[in-house]
Design a protein around this nucleic acid. Structure first.
Lengths: 332, 332
DNA sequence: TATTAAAGTGAAATCGATTACACACAATAA
DNA sequence: TTATTGTGTGTAATCGATTTCACTTTAATA
C-alpha cells in the first residue's frame, strides 16, 4: 500500500493525499474521500520515504550505560512515557558501561539517524567532550551536569550533605565514608563533597583513613566495610554513596556484632527497592529518577520542535527517606 | 554527504560505491580509491534511502510491558547484547501494562517499520491472537509459550513444583498459596499448577481457603498473607508466585510473631535482588532471564537472515536458590 | 468593472540509496 | 575460430513520500 494506490482509489492526486496528512490546502470533499479510503485500507505512510524527503526521522536515540539498574530503568521509563505520547519512537542503545561504545553510538546517532539524543551519562572524558562538541543533533544529558549543554541532574551534593548532617544531628562523630570513583562526577565526586562539607560545617575533622573507594557492587561494600570496622574501632556512623554499597556494609556490621543503629548508623543513596526490605530498613536518599527522565524527554522534544527552550538546566530535588538504620527516624 | 559526492570524489559511478558496500563486482583499484574517500569524509550511507529501496529497515522492535522490573530489564539486557553485535538497532516500545498499547505497537511495527519483533508477553487475549495471526513480520515471544509461534519461555510449572516439593520434603503439610491472575499463563496459571501438582503428588489435599490471588505488589502480598494467617492458624508453609509477594508476606508473618523458617517456611519466585538481602534471606527460583533474552534475539535474527530455523521453542531451565526462609538449606 | 488575494489542484522534481540492464573485455572451452 | 563464461562498469529506473511550481477557480476589494 503506497500513496499512489491511495490516490487512485480516492480519485485524487498523490499530492492531495500528502496534503491530507500534512494539513495542506485541501477541500472538505476530497478530505472525506481520502479519509474513507484510508479507513478501509488501514494505510500508513512509509516512515522511510517521508524521512528521506523531509530529513526528519521521528526517532529519538537514548544512550544508557546499563539497563538492569534501578536508577537507569526508572529514567528510561520516564523518557519512554513522554516519547510514547509524541509521534516519536525510541531507539535504545545500551553501552554496557563501555565508554567506546558510548562514543560510537553518539557518532552513529549524529549521522542524522535520529532527531535527538538523550544521554544517561556516567563520566566525561576529553574524548567525550570532543564528540559532544561536534554534535549537530540536539542532545539532553541526564544524571550529570555538563556546562554548556542542556541537562537534567540530581542534587547529589546537598543530598549527601543532608544524609551526613542527619547522622551528625543524631550525635555521631566518627562517620566513615564508602564511595565510588570521583571520575563519576555525580555519584563519586559530588556525593563525597557533600559528605566532606557536612563534616566541616560541624567542625569534625576529615580522616582519610576512614574513607574508602569501591566499585558499585554489594560485595565490595561488604569487604571494605569489614576493613573499616577493623581499622576504626570507634566508628559510629557510615555514609555510603549507593544503597548497594550500604547493604553490603550492613552485612559486615551485623557480622561484627555491632548493632544498627545503636552502635553504628548507616545511610545509603538512591532509595532502591532493597532499602525498604532489609532488616533494619535502610535510610536512604530518594531521587526522582522517573521524573528526570520525563523532564529530559520534554526538554528534548521542545528543542526539536524548534520552540524556544526555556530551561537550560534542571536540578532535581531529593528526599531523605528515614528508616531504621538511623535513629530518631519517622519510619517510612 | 551522499553517495553521489563520494562517487565524484573517488572518480567512479554511484553504482560502484554502492557495490563497495554490498560486495558487488568491483576492482581492487576502485575499491581502494573509494575506501580512501570514505575514510576521509566519514561517510555513512543513509539508512532511510537504503530501507526505501531494499525494504529492509535493520530495526528490531522490542515490546515490553514495563521497563523497571527485574525480569523485564534483564531480558532486555540480553536482547540488547545480541542485537548490538549485529547491524540491527533496537526500538523499544513500553506498553506500561496496557493491552491496547501492546496491540497498537504490534500493528505499527507490522507496517514494515521493523524487520522483526520481540514481544515480552504477559497475557494473550483473543484480540492478541488475531493480531498475531495477521502479522507479516517475524516475531519471537519471550516469557510465555504460545502454540504455533517461536517462543522462549521458562519452566514455570516444574519450578513451582520443585519449590513446593522442597517445603514438603522439609515436613510442611499446611502450605498456603499466594499467586496472581491465571490469565497470566506463565506466572499465574503454570506456577499455580506446579504448586497444586506437588501437593497432589504427596497426597496433600488442596484447600481453596488457603489460596489467595493478588496483583504483583508487595502491599497486597502483605495484606493477603495477614488474612491467610488469621484464617489458617496451622499454616506452616507459604508458596508465593513472585518475590515481591513473598517479601510482603514475610512482613506479615514476622508481625504475627511466627518465626521463619521454624514456624512457617516461605518461598518466592524470580530471584530478585531483594531476595538476597531480606532477613531471613528468601529462598527463591532463579530464572535465566538475560539468557532467554539472548536466545530470543538470536532466534529472531536467524529467522530474519532467512537461515533455516532450528529451534521453534526454547524452554529455559531454573535453579532453586536455597536461602534461610526454608530449612535444611545450603546458604547461597 | 477591474484587480488582487486566497483556496485548491496535479505534474514533476526531489531525497539517497540499490539494482536491472546493456555492454565491454579477458580468459577459457569446444 | 567461435562460443561461453566470469568480471567489471555506468546509465537509468526505482522505492514512497513531500513540495515547488504553474495554473484554475472563487471571493474580496478598490
Amino acid at each position: 500500500m503506497n500513496i499512489s494506490e491511495i490516490a487512485d482509489l480516492a480519485g485524487v492526486s498523490k499530492a492531495a493525499v500528502s496534503r491530507y496528512f500534512n494539513n495542506g490546502y485541501i477541500s472538505e470533499e476530497k478530505k472525506e474521500k481520502i479519509r474513507k479510503v484510508i479507513e478501509q485500507t488501514g494505510y500508513q505512510p512509509s516512515r522511510e520515504a517521508r524521512t528521506l524527503r523531509t530529513r526528519k526521522t521521528n526517532l529519538i536515540g537514548v544512550i544508557i550505560p546499563k539497563i538492569n539498574s534501578h536508577a537507569v530503568s526508572r529514567m528510561v521509563a520516564g523518557i519512554s512515557s513522554i516519547i510514547s505520547k509524541s509521534d516519536y519512537q525510541m531507539i535504545l542503545a545500551n553501552t554496557e558501561n563501555n565508554a567506546k561504545k558510548e562514543l560510537d553510538y553518539l557518532k552513529i546517532f549524529n549521522q542524522k539517524q535520529v532527531d535527538g539524543i538523550v544521554l544517561i551519562a556516567t563520566m566525561f572524558s576529553t574524548e567525550h567532550k570532543k564528540v559532544l562538541k561536534n554534535l549537530t543533533v540536539p542532545i539532553v544529558i541526564v544524571g550529570q551536569k555538563l556546562e554548556g549543554y542542556q541537562c537534567v541532574y540530581h542534587d547529589d551534593y546537598h543530598a549527601a550533605y543532608r544524609l551526613t548532617e542527619k547522622m551528625i544531628e543524631n550525635g555521631r562523630k566518627q562517620i566513615g565514608y564508602i564511595g565510588v570513583t570521583t571520575e563519576d562526577i555525580a555519584v563519586g565526586f559530588e556525593r563525597k563533597r557533600g559528605y566532606q562539607k557536612a563534616l566541616k560545617k560541624y567542625g569534625i575533622p576529615e580522616d582519610k583513613s576512614r574513607m574508602m573507594q569501591v566499585s558499585f557492587s554489594m560485595e565490595e561494600g561488604y569487604i571494605k566495610a569489614k576493613e573499616l570496622l577493623d581499622n576504626v574501632p570507634d566508628l559510629d556512623g557510615l555514609f555510603c554513596s549507593t544503597d548497594n554499597i550500604a547493604i553490603g556494609a550492613m552485612k559486615a556490621i551485623k557480622e561484627s556484632g555491632k548493632k544498627i543503629p545503636d552502635d553504628i548508623e548507616i545511610g545509603g543513596m538512591g532509595d532502591s527497592m532493597m532499602a525498604k526490605v532489609t532488616t533494619p530498613s535502610l535510610t536512604s536518599i530518594h531521587f526522582y529518577y522517573k521524573t528526570s527522565g520525563e523532564e529530559a524527554a520534554k526538554m528534548l522534544l521542545t528543542e526539536i520542535e524548534g520552540e524556544s527552550v526555556i530551561a537550560k538546566e534542571i536540578k532535581m530535588g531529593y528526599k531523605l527517606m528515614e528508616r531504621d538504620s538511623m535513629k530518631n527516624s519517622k519510619k517510612v
